[in-house]
């Protein structure tokens, strides 16, 4: 199981703070494609953090990882 955290407008669009995705292993890009289809969200501008570190599209996510969907940040 992969734990997916959603923030800002994504949290509102998806309607949840947290999702569980049943996969043993997949790439960041594959996960985004899956979420895009399932929740009709725009993923072009998203970056992904795996276990609190920014990840690349080809990086692998494994069961037990925590993934965060990070829209462009606007702190400060």
């Amino acid at each position: 199981m992969i734990n997916v955290l959603c923030f800002a407008h994504l949290k509102e669009q998806i309607g949840k703070e947290q999702l569980e995705v049943a996969h043993e292993k997949l790439t960041v890009k594959q996960l985004l494609n899956e979420l895009q289809e399932k929740y009709a969200i725009q993923t072009d501008a998203l970056i992904v953090a795996v276990n609190e570190e920014y990840a690349d599209p080809e990086d692998l996510i494994q069961s037990g990882d925590t993934v965060a969907l990070i829209p462009p940040v606007s702190g400060g």
């Binding site: 800002a8 965060a68 606007s74 702190g75 400060g76």
Partner: peptide
């Protein structure tokens, strides 16, 4: 402050 606006996962509404 420039880096906060680039790399820190905080969002404002």
């Amino acid at each position: 402050i420039e880096r906060i606006k680039q790399i820190v996962p905080i969002w404002k509404k």
